[in-house]
Nucleic acid binder design. Sequence first.
DNA 1: TTGGAAAGTCAACAAGGCTGACATAAAGTC
DNA 2: GACTTTATGTCAGCCTTGTTGACTTTCCAA
Lengths: 165, 165
Amino acid sequence: MAESGSPGGETLLFLTDEQLRKGIEAMFFAYRAFTADPDRLLEEHGYGRAHHRALHFINRQPGLTVTTLLAVLGVTKQSLNRVLRTLIEDGLVESRVGKRDKRERRLHLTEEGEALERALSEAQRGRMRAAYRAAGPQAVAGFRQVLEAMMGPDLHKLYQMMKDE
Amino acid sequence: MAESGSPGGETLLFLTDEQLRKGIEAMFFAYRAFTADPDRLLEEHGYGRAHHRALHFINRQPGLTVTTLLAVLGVTKQSLNRVLRTLIEDGLVESRVGKRDKRERRLHLTEEGEALERALSEAQRGRMRAAYRAAGPQAVAGFRQVLEAMMGPDLHKLYQMMKDE
DNA sequence: TTGGAAAGTCAACAAGGCTGACATAAAGTC
DNA sequence: GACTTTATGTCAGCCTTGTTGACTTTCCAA
């Protein structure tokens, strides 16, 4: 019941606690749907969500280093390594020694890795595309604005690191 | 590279695979930020995200049954029970035998439960409020539209079950 | 040459999903 | 009244994915 009134001349009803709670629930349910499609596919291949995330970002930034991927994913080295190791063993990801700095490992998807990434992304984009189409370009712009504002400056920096087109 | 052209007379650039991928990443980063604040608070109390979700929905629908909560959360009985048991033992949730149907357990928050829920929600709403304010009412409307379209009919039904104001 | 950064590994632990199998009480049905 | 179904709870065990802490190897850079 914080800001229910009309302090200035503007209507701030969209900042009501109730509206905020509905927004929170919308995030909860939407995120569940958002991960459901790739999850099904992953299970068939014996992988989990963590594998998907690694594949996604390696695909987006071919040649990124392990340290960068760690920062992007926001997990510990040990946690990522477990996932990365199986992907490399299974021949989905290739780890190449850095040219200038030989300590670095540059990560790339193999053809097989690209194929799985594409399938996972397809599933996820399918739902996204349907939602975008249903809501329209104006709504999509608002959607992106709110999400970007919500992620805060640090994550927004990582977000912008990913190539835009 | 599916729909890059201009099939009709309309610009469908917002349905580009690249735009969809950015949307996917926005969801990923935003959801991470979205859960970060309550997670900190939860850790101080020795609880996890699962406890937060239970508290949230019991608060929203006081007196809901276990079966309903199961449907809303989308987890198994065993998984929910582990969480619910500790909340009841710790005196945050009260389980009352149903009046008409005595098999049912009606779930309610105690005062202590309400206090924690309020604190968690406050943390989460703080970020949400800032994002909403920064993006403006128009963007918020679009945000909600896209999320609702994304969750699909089944989850949308559960979403609408929650009281709106 | 020496300190620090990048990567990898081992071990142990915790949260929170899951399945399967059962048990009980209460409702509902025939 | 006997039988079936529903709502709930519980035990046991497994998996993924996160964590901390300790330690190693390799390599860059001052």
